[in-house]
Lab assay of single mutants.
Amino acid sequence: MEVRTIKVFTTVDNINLHTQVVDMSMTYGQQFGPTYLDGADVTKIKPHNSHEGKTFYVLPNDDTLRVEAFEYYHTTDPSFLGRYMSALNHTKKWKYPQVNGLTSIKWADNNCYLATALLTLQQIELKFNPPALQDAYYRARAGEAANFCALILAYCNKTVGELGDVRETMSYLFQHANLDSCKRVLNVVCKTCGQQQTTLKGVEAVMYMGTLSYEQFKKGVQIPCTCGKQATKYLVQQESPFVMMSAPPAQYELKHGTFTCASEYTGNYQCGHYKHITSKETLYCIDGALLTKSSEYKGPITDVFYKENSYTTTIK
């Protein structure tokens, strides 16, 4: 009895394709271990004539594949690729409408935090270190965002349907971005203890939790000093293409032309909904596939993004 075979390709990165001759009487799992086709788990399936010449994702289970996976995804987590594939199996079914010149995501599976993050990423200057993220990001900007969303979920250790947080998501993504040249110098002034300067680099240099107003941050924000008295913390120097200011959701007025974009969060910790506000020729609110415009805006804002380049204080 002759062994019926077909020729397929296996890959971990969709760049390096490895030619395989597979036995049609055995499952993919018996031949390769966990195997995925377009995100779908085909591990328990036997090869079919229609699979001839198709590319299958496999887990990096030998040295060659491990090197290829690390170079593309910059992670050695053995569960990463499987999590990416199972997320992709959902995100490829989502709709990605162009809204006001940006790629958004039609609401499904509690994905409003991903839509808000995706919209924000198209408006701030950011370059990702893992080629996987950078490639998928370019495709997302062009309207094909399924891979990018699935990668975000995998890097953030999230599953489809789980509630997510924009600030946490951005923080994970910033860790995989090139923020080497970003720098922030802060000064804390206390009447009792004097003053202390701190220099922050990388992710810490672009994120701040405690106030939404970048102007206020430049002037000074009140913080408790270690001595128990009130101290003032203010920005001395900022070198970065953008800054992200966050605070627990509270009524906040966004003035046209003073910011790049913002995240609105309605609801409580267990259950809520994100919308995205962007400042173009007027203010726009993007909620999944829905767009509304207004000249002014007041609502429960939790993150505001500002364009920056270089700032030095005039406070002496």
Score class of each variant (00 low, 15 high):
Ala150Pro: 03
Asp165Tyr: 03
Lys307Arg: 13
Gln270Trp: 04
Tyr208Phe: 13
Ile124Thr: 02
His90Met: 11
Glu144Thr: 07
Tyr57Thr: 11
Met24Thr: 11
Lys293Gln: 14
Leu212Ser: 02
Tyr138Thr: 14
Ala87Gln: 04
Thr64Phe: 09
Asn100Val: 05
Glu215Phe: 02
Asn14Met: 14
Leu290Phe: 13
Ser86Met: 10
Val243Phe: 02
Tyr36Trp: 15
Val12Met: 08
Met244Ala: 01
Ala177Ser: 09
Gln175Leu: 07
Thr55Cys: 11
Ala145Met: 04
Phe217Lys: 02
Ile152Tyr: 03
Gly228Ser: 02
Asp38Cys: 09
Asn147Pro: 12
Gly53Cys: 11
Asp77Leu: 05
Asn61Tyr: 14
Trp107Asp: 04
Lys229Thr: 11
Pro131Gln: 03
Thr258Val: 06
Gln31Lys: 11
Val3Asn: 14
Val221Met: 09
Gly202Lys: 05
Asn110Cys: 05
Pro60Ala: 11
Cys285Ser: 13
Gln237Pro: 02
Gly228His: 02
Ala150Val: 03
Cys156Ile: 08
Arg66Ala: 13
Ser79Leu: 13
Ser246Cys: 08
Leu88Met: 06
Glu281Leu: 01
Phe148Ala: 04
Thr11Leu: 05
His48Asp: 14
Val188Thr: 15
Leu235Ser: 00
Val58Gly: 06
Phe217Tyr: 06
Asn49Val: 13
Lys46Arg: 13
Arg167Met: 00
Lys201Arg: 15
Leu65Thr: 14
Ser171Ile: 11
Phe128Tyr: 09
Cys225Val: 00
Ser294Asp: 11
Phe56Arg: 04
Val8Ser: 06
Glu281Tyr: 00
Ile277Gln: 03
Ser79Phe: 08
Lys54Tyr: 15
Cys190Leu: 02
Phe174Gln: 02
Lys92Gly: 06
Gln20Tyr: 10
Lys307Leu: 12
Leu235Arg: 01
Val8Pro: 06
Thr211Glu: 11
Phe32Cys: 12
Thr120Tyr: 03
Ile277Ala: 01
Glu71Pro: 02
Ser50Gln: 13
Asp63Trp: 06
His90Ser: 12
Tyr96Trp: 05
Ile277Leu: 08
Ile124Glu: 04
Asp109Trp: 03
Lys293Asn: 11
His273Ile: 04
Val236Asp: 01
Asp63Ala: 11
Val67Glu: 10
Gly53Val: 07
Lys293Ala: 14
Gln270Leu: 10
Gly53Pro: 04
His48Val: 13
Thr27Gly: 08
Thr314Trp: 13
Cys193His: 02
Asn147Ser: 11
Gln134Ser: 11
Glu296Thr: 13
Asp41Met: 10
Arg184Ala: 15
Val22Gly: 08
Leu153Cys: 07
Leu254Asn: 01
Tyr252Met: 12
Met207Cys: 08
Leu65Val: 06
Val236Gln: 06
Thr211Arg: 04
Leu291His: 15
Thr64Ala: 14
Ser310Trp: 08
Glu162Trp: 01
Gln238Ile: 01
Thr282Arg: 10
Lys275Phe: 00
His90Arg: 11
Asp62Trp: 07
Asp63Met: 09
Tyr137Asn: 03
Ser104Asn: 07
Gly210Ile: 00
Ser295Thr: 12
Ala132Ile: 04
Gly257Phe: 01
Val22Ser: 08
Asp63His: 09
Lys191Gly: 12
Asn16Met: 08
Ala150Asn: 03
Lys95Phe: 09
Cys193Tyr: 01
Thr19Ser: 14
Asp303Val: 04
Glu162Lys: 06
Glu144Cys: 10
Ala231Glu: 00
Asp23Cys: 12
Gly272Phe: 00
Gln216Ile: 07
Ser294Pro: 11
Gln216Gly: 07
Lys46Asp: 12
Val203Glu: 06
Glu52Thr: 11
Pro47Asp: 03
Ala117Gln: 00
Thr302Leu: 00
Ala40Tyr: 14
Val58Tyr: 05
Thr226Arg: 14
Arg66Gly: 10
Gly53Trp: 11
Arg83Gln: 08
Ile15Gly: 09
Gln98Leu: 13
Val99Thr: 10
Met170Lys: 01
Gly143Ile: 03
Leu290Cys: 15
Gly202Ala: 02
Tyr57Cys: 09
His18Ile: 06
Val236Thr: 06
Tyr269His: 15
Ile152His: 03
Lys255Val: 15
Gly210Trp: 06
Phe217Pro: 01
Ser86Tyr: 08
Lys218Leu: 04
